[in-house]
Amino acid sequence: MTGEELLEKLELADPAYVQAAAETPAGRRRAGVRRAVLAAACVCLLASAAAAAGGGTWLLDSFTARGAPGSDFTQSGYDLAADVERFPVSALTGEIQEAGEEIARQFENHDLASSWHPSTLRRAEFPSAAEARTYIGLDALRELDWDLEETRTMLRVTGNSQGQLLRVGLETDYEVEGVRLQAFANIFTEHDDSAAVTGARTTEDVEFSESLCTSANGKRYQVITNTGFASGYYGMDGYLVEDGVLYHLHLAYLKEDEALAESLLRQWADLF
């Protein structure tokens, strides 16, 4: 059989299925994210409008020096929601499948007095991001062809006590002329029904601002920048969802390296 014959033979599809596909679709369901949107008191119309064209992410909230009732501490930060794919665990075809059992064992052996939580498994032994991607084995996960020297690759796998994998985070670090870069790829599985919300928190009083950009390949991505920390470093973060995976680049840089940081962020976005 050829592809053309198969295309033709698909005419044998049940008329009920064909009819259903012809009907006008009802509003799309995005319950998890929608709940998160409703829960955020500070969602402004501008942010929502930006979200629609923002490469699959949108800013829910940002705040500076926000105090919690009964606390002396204040926090600055932001929350960002992402429209990601919930991949079936079967799509992770690498050795990562074994991580579920290891996490379940961590739960069994967990000392309640311990400061670490048994749901996370960290692996830092990968010599390169390529090996870590092989370990994950997800087709949709992009190999970023970036001509920078990797300084570290770290994998974080989150699971539950039943050994089900919930999330996978792959971090690859680089350093370019004093600018520190952390590139993340975040994969959510079918077992994770929480809203896909990410963001940042600091006890310092910094302000965040948002912008939307378009890469050379026409991909929309969201950029969050913050004013300087006491250390003199500024932060710049790019977010983009591609093939259902949330990609994030964090850059830490000194004020005089701002143009280089912006250029690196553009390079990263152009890889998609």
């Binding site: 050829t2 592809g3 198969l6 295309l7 033979k9 698909l10 044998l12 599809a13 049940d14």
Partner: peptide, 30 residues
């Protein structure tokens, strides 16, 4: 483009279509 995409679904290009009558193929597809 469409036939190229579907070509990759076929385990091995051969005379499989001839081995199945339309009714059997309809069942497989559905």
């Amino acid at each position: 483009q469409l036939t190229g995409e579907l070509e990759r679904c076929l385990p091995a290009p051969d005379n499989a279509a001839e081995r199945l009558d339309a009714l059997a193929l309809e069942e497989v597809i559905n």
